[in-house]
Design a protein around this nucleic acid. Structure first.
Lengths: 344, 344
DNA sequence: ATGAAAGCGCTAACAC
DNA sequence: GTGTTAGCGCTTTCAT
């Protein structure tokens, strides 16, 4: 791993602001002003500078600028998984808003690992990131509060944050919607498939709302029908069915707390010769695009995924620009029931 | 300044390398060396510096470093869509490799817009990005060649690049696999659903291989059964079926060049009362996770999505480190047929 | 309206 | 081993 020792930039003479200025016959400062749209530059001068800039193919150095400003035009995003149709649209929404302002998106995947999340936040700080939008692994957000008090705006997405700004959906309400629908359709023997992780507040909230409504109707979920799996993949849904079918009896309806697991559940139920919804009705959560194309189209709770990303980005930029109220804004969007064949 | 009850540390003295050095009683340079693992620092000194660094919560400024080195520890990634199960795993694979080396991922979505792609590449340059991995919109890659000749490694992903490094799958071969399977199962009345965009080389290649094998068997695809849609969403598959069913006759087998469209196709065929595969067999492409859970599990061509990302990142880092051969490496991975119920 | 000077925080070159 | 000296390319005062 060696490099040129004497003239490191002999092949490619980098075009700097100084070059542009020289070519335009002005000082560096004036060139900088012109390129940044500062009005205190005479039109004629400005035109000359802009012309020089394009002629030389000037590429501004964001690092130099960032060094001075102690901030870059970037948004850091941390989500649990990239390859997850629940998160991907959120990131896409953020990117759309960020692109409008020519901010770059720095994306990290925590893979539900709190350490990884902290590492990413630290790296973001090193880059003097312009702001952070994250779906945190747990509710412990001290690392992020430290960043925020250092002046970097932070918005939590798809999860609530007591001490800061967030854009989330009302998961308790979502759980209620599921329970109400099941009760209304006359189901009483009801099971649950969910991620076991007690740190995962959104799932806890969904289950809470679900139980609340069932409880009010005098119903509960037998332990044997409360299946806890470790992840949120299709395979976890498959595993859940396997475990459920070990029981002497099985429920006539299942609330599966994510669509991916729901797809796996339906898939396996079918393979095991059980009809959906006749033998077991299934309700998922998230309304991913593939829910509709499932073996039996999945009844589910729709969450405004892309909007959450867009709104989070909007909040972030407002904070960045210093507009809006001082107190943290906490946005809770409403989930909606989408009825399909798996639980009509 | 007014006093605030909650956040009181308003004037945070930024911790710089100078602070750390002072506290450790050494010069800035020595501190820099110690923190960068330069062996030319006495153990004792190094320990003192490291201690000072942690005590002060020192956060290195990557912008300053980048300004000197004219390069940052970042990888820029450009894909067509984030919310696409074909690309998301690739990005995840890249991120995994990058994270090992503490490189941050800067992600852009071109949305099949060449202008947007160029804009992103330009922004990457401004950030003095460490390398670029992209799935380009077209084969016109002059913008990227310019970047590369300025010393930034570039790897193309999921597409071939005559003049540079790439990691792709053999789409022509994939198309052949589809045709062979159909022929072997006795299908002769064969239709095609594909994205119409002539710039999209991968689809062109799939179709080319497909036609090649059919042609060798004396078969062709009637124009009426060659349905061209504008996108690669589920809805495009749905639209394709609508168009197909306007015909007097319909094919007994369909090759749909992406799984998402394939899901839409199956969905709509079913809604229109046509059985898959009895009335129409369907083969997709990509093997996204949801293909298996489709109304009728989708026969498809599996592509090593995550591996492509990982390999692209590996290539990039090799180039970055200056190891490996000088000539561009071009990796072509093999697709595999996955037989499921939609075309058994 | 324009420019000169002074850094931003760090690393590289060359001493000692 | 360690320190001194120069910048990297840009944006800020503060002059003019």
């Amino acid at each position: 791993m060696k490099r040129l020792s004497i003239h490191k930039k002999q092949n490619v003479m980098r075009v700097t602001l100084a070059e542009v200025a020289r070519r335009a016959g002005v000082s560096i400062v004036t060139a900088s002003r012109a390129l940044n749209g500062n009005p205190l530059v005479a039109e004629a001068t400005k035109d000359r500078i802009l012309a020089a800039s394009t002629a030389l193919r000037y590429i501004p150095n964001l690092l130099a600028r960032g060094l001075v400003k102690d901030r870059t035009a970037t948004v850091g995003v941390i989500i649990l998984e990239l390859a997850n149709p629940f998160f991907a649209p959120m990131v896409s929404g953020i990117q759309a808003i960020a692109a409008k302002r020519a901010f770059l998106l720095v994306v990290g995947e925590s893979r539900r690992d709190e350490e990884e999340e902290r590492r990413l936040v630290a790296q973001f700080q090193q880059l003097r990131i312009g702001g952070i939008i994250l779906n945190p692994v747990t509710d412990t957000l001290d690392h992020v509060m430290a960043v925020r008090s250092a002046g970097t705006p932070v918005v939590v997405m798809a999860r609530r944050w007591e001490h800061g700004e967030y854009v989330a959906t009302d998961d308790v309400e979502g759980g209620r919607l599921v329970a109400k629908h099941l009760l209304q359709r006359g189901y009483r023997r009801i099971g649950l498939v969910r991620m076991g992780d007690p740190n995962h507040a959104p799932v806890q909230a969904r289950v809470q709302g679900f139980r609340e409504v069932l409880g009010a109707a005098g119903l509960g979920i037998p332990d044997a029908w409360d299946v806890q799996v470790s992840g949120a993949q299709i395979t976890d849904g498959i595993e859940a069915v396997e475990r459920l079918l070990l029981q002497a009896e099985y429920p006539s309806a299942l609330f599966v707390t994510s669509d991916r697991k729901g797809l796996g559940v339906i898939h396996r139920l079918h393979e095991r010769g059980l009809r959906v919804p006749e033998d077991v009705a299934v309700i998922g959560y998230d309304d991913i695009p593939y829910a509709e194309c499932a073996r039996v189209p999945l009844t589910t709770i729709a969450v405004p995924k892309r909007s959450m990303g867009e709104m989070a980005a909007d909040l972030l930029f407002q904070r960045h620009d210093g507009v809006g109220p001082v107190e943290p804004r906490q946005v809770l969007l409403s989930p909606k029931l989408v009825i399909r064949a798996s639980c009509p």
